[in-house]
Design a protein around this nucleic acid. Sequence first.
DNA 1: TTTT
DNA 2: TTTT
Lengths: 158, 158, 158, 158
Amino acid sequence: MARGINKVILVGNLGNDPDVKYTQGGMAVTRISLATTSVRKDRDGNTQERTEWHRVVFFGKLGEIAGEYLRKGSQVYVEGSIRYDKYTGQDGVEKYSTDIIADEMQMLGGRGGGEGGGGGSYERSPRPQRQESAPRPQSAPSRQPAPADDFSDDDIPF
Amino acid sequence: MARGINKVILVGNLGNDPDVKYTQGGMAVTRISLATTSVRKDRDGNTQERTEWHRVVFFGKLGEIAGEYLRKGSQVYVEGSIRYDKYTGQDGVEKYSTDIIADEMQMLGGRGGGEGGGGGSYERSPRPQRQESAPRPQSAPSRQPAPADDFSDDDIPF
Amino acid sequence: MARGINKVILVGNLGNDPDVKYTQGGMAVTRISLATTSVRKDRDGNTQERTEWHRVVFFGKLGEIAGEYLRKGSQVYVEGSIRYDKYTGQDGVEKYSTDIIADEMQMLGGRGGGEGGGGGSYERSPRPQRQESAPRPQSAPSRQPAPADDFSDDDIPF
Amino acid sequence: MARGINKVILVGNLGNDPDVKYTQGGMAVTRISLATTSVRKDRDGNTQERTEWHRVVFFGKLGEIAGEYLRKGSQVYVEGSIRYDKYTGQDGVEKYSTDIIADEMQMLGGRGGGEGGGGGSYERSPRPQRQESAPRPQSAPSRQPAPADDFSDDDIPF
DNA sequence: TTTT
DNA sequence: TTTT
């Protein structure tokens, strides 16, 4: 449960190769710098461009895939959320940073700038539940008021 | 892995109470009819309205929550994807239907029209992996090139 | 002013070249068929694919650009809204259709599948304000290959 | 034309009443602070909350509407883009800020927290085309409480 | 600083 | 009907 929606959708190109690090626990933390450019005409009719550089972070399996397949120049679709952080720099001054925490990624263009090329979409892996054994979901009612006749006993369909 | 993005974001009101059914396996399949209205001025300056009625489907845990908390008139945020189906009606004629398969929902407005009221956001539960035992993720490299110094050993953070 | 949000975001590939028609008033109405594919593992661990074919419609200037630059196989980002229509077929039977009305488009991949290639983003032009004499858009070709028979001479519809 | 997609979708509650200022040219520049809260379970099964405070900016007509109808506590849907700015503070130190530039807004919940209540959606007005004499917008109040000192007399910025 |  |  949460309260509110915080969703970001980006399509842009990487300004550099991804930066991949690992936590002590072995989780990948991959960062990219992603450019999106918008264009408008100013009041004198001149075309003006402005580029935003987004700091995008991928965790876990998604971070490994990003680190492996993305390269400087790659075009990529990213979906995630905004996170604002405040920290104290080495100079003792309070600083602020903004990151996009990715939870879905799709390489675009067939060969985005890297050699591996190829498009493909990946989702952030669900956090593994920490539990002794996987109990049967308690949410399923013991008695069904009415069958959903157009779905078999499979799990959630497409 | 997938190829393409198919994403729908809706904010609207329910035209009726949810319709909850269950598969033989006990999975909830809840359907709602969601109205979104757009307004424009026609060439004569008159205001014209048009309402789309979306058929939204919630599966599993999300379907149970939708069935429990949503009511006719409730305002809700839904995120999901479009699914087109083709089937043969009882009259032998081919028919087409379009559904929005929800994977996130948030009740809006503090008391959307039902008594339970209250807002809150819910995500579609991840499909449980079917496996003998949960093996340690092979994706974690045996050796880490560099520690991600700003994340502890926790799982994926906020 | 409106009531509700009806938003669709697609990234996919064209199954065919665009179909461009013009209203009697000279407005372009361009249709494409856009594929998005999702993949999941079924309960037996087998990979299953499912492709949705979206009918996307571009009006006006955006329709002209889509018709000019998109080609079969092109990868494209589309943003728009869902519209459901009900009509009576030639056989007297009521039918339903679902279209995505585009209001933003971006060609992806650096060379979308056509020769013109190159990416770029375009927005639906605002509806021209009613004015003394509506000059014929200069971008409309002097000869229309085919009338868009299902749209009157109005400006961009809902 | 542009290159890239930079899209943000937020649903949240205002932490304070809107701050409305006007440029010397009479354009409203309204700022709100919008909270979105996410919840997760940490590895010990405890519920953890994290709230992001988004700085959202509305320009022009949209800014006037936001200033008029939104209030502390109001729930609102906002669509826009992210803009990162870098500036030198009064202390001579370089600082960074992140804003969400809104181009669509919808009040939620039937009575957003203010008296006017009611939901409704508004889009950013298209930039007026350069014209002989730019008439002063009639919607701008005859007296501006405070100048929006960080925007010149230009129209809606990036 | 909001909200539940 | 696309794409990988």
